[in-house]
């Protein structure tokens, strides 16, 4: 299957007073229609910056310094997003790439009704008549299972619950029928029951709208529930990528292993919960060699000197480690 969005060698740096902090250090992945890719990692590993880089919305002083993001077009060859002028990129945002943010509390403008905000999402790209827009808005609100959309249309964000707000954000992201949906921690601010429903909603809409989804999260439960493939990020690189089932069953990178072990399981006799040793180093002091080696239980001499090249350890299972687990 042809990928809808293909990312390769993406590097995004933050330059602060002549120091360069490399937040994303060469990331490759691709998104396919009707599939969800999970991007997981601890705080500060570069997940969100990667997502924002795809939209070319990296906040200053961040800058995309290298790489390519190619969007498949139905007619003609793929479109390189990183070299588009800003005015053309604006037409891609919202129409080809939709995005959902973490905080449904602050992602809606407090002074407009939710109907007006969904309507604005449509009107940025399509000059439709008043009535047609309103019908489409109510249709979208119904698609995201917002109860009673006709009267909710006139509610302000502060009158909705967190889950309802996130539904509205999804409706806004879907307003122009994008090919790719980027969801940055869409359920982190919600409680667990609402979380499951929102994830289910995203999956259903993905199938209905035939979208590719990038799901950014730090929650392995979310990954298990909602993705087909996973990419694990550590310090700005994807250290392991595999089909979700395979990754959970047979992780090859010691870091992935550590993450999986740090999830508590009911009914398991264990005195202490295993955690990944140490803390994430700051971006200004990325260790030489394999960047994970100071925290790695399997690190050897070579890990201190050389950064590992990506290798295949199974079908569609790629890992960057000198001593992968079997």
């Amino acid at each position: 299957m042809n990928p809808v969005l293909e990312v390769s060698g993406l590097r995004t740096h933050f330059g602060i007073e002549k120091r360069v902090l490399p937040a994303v250090r060469g990331v490759d992945f691709s998104l396919s229609r009707g599939r969800t890719l999970g991007l997981v990692g601890e705080s500060g590993c570069g997940k969100t910056v990667t997502a924002l880089s795809l939209m070319r919305l990296v906040p200053r002083p961040g800058r995309i310094v290298a790489g390519s993001v190619r969007l498949d077009r139905s007619g003609g060859g793929p479109l390189e997003l990183l070299s588009l002028p800003e005015s053309r990129m604006r037409r891609i945002r919202g129409r080809e790439l939709g995005m959902i943010f973490q905080e449904p509390m602050t992602s809606l403008n407090p002074v407009f009704t939710i109907g007006e905000q969904v309507r604005e999402a449509i009107r940025v790209h399509e000059p439709l008549g008043k009535k047609a827009v309103r019908e489409r808005v109510i249709g979208l609100l119904r698609d995201v299972n917002l109860p009673d959309p006709e009267s909710r249309y006139f509610d302000y964000p502060h009158q909705l619950s967190g889950g309802q707000r996130q539904r509205v954000m999804i409706a806004i992201a879907l307003a122009c029928n994008p090919k790719v949906l980027i969801a940055d921690e869409p359920t982190t601010a919600l409680d667990v029951t609402v979380q499951a429903r929102i994830l289910g909603l995203i999956s259903r809409l993905r199938d209905r709208y035939e979208m590719a989804v990038l799901l950014v999260t730090h929650d392995l439960g979310v990954v298990a529930q909602a993705t087909e493939r996973v990419a694990v990020m550590y310090l700005g690189r994807i250290v392991e990528a595999a089909a979700t089932r395979r990754l959970f069953k047979a992780p090859a990178h010691p870091y992935t292993r550590g993450l999986l072990d740090s999830v508590p399981r009911l009914g398991e006799e264990k005195r202490r919960l295993a955690a990944v040793r140490g803390a994430v180093p700051t971006l200004s002091r990325i260790p030489a060699g394999c960047s994970f080696h100071p925290r790695c239980p399997r690190a050897g001499e070579v890990c201190r000197r050389e950064s590992p090249a990506p290798r295949e350890v199974g079908e569609g299972h790629r890992v960057e480690c000198h001593f992968p687990l079997e």
Partner: peptide
């Protein structure tokens, strides 16, 4: 604020952002 970022993610131009997102606030 995040809603300004969200509006940019929809493809709003700077002028539209100022007039339709920030000005009303």
């Amino acid at each position: 604020r995040e809603y300004v970022l969200a509006a940019r993610a929809l493809g709003s131009s700077p002028g539209r952002l100022i007039v339709r997102q920030i000005l009303p606030n």
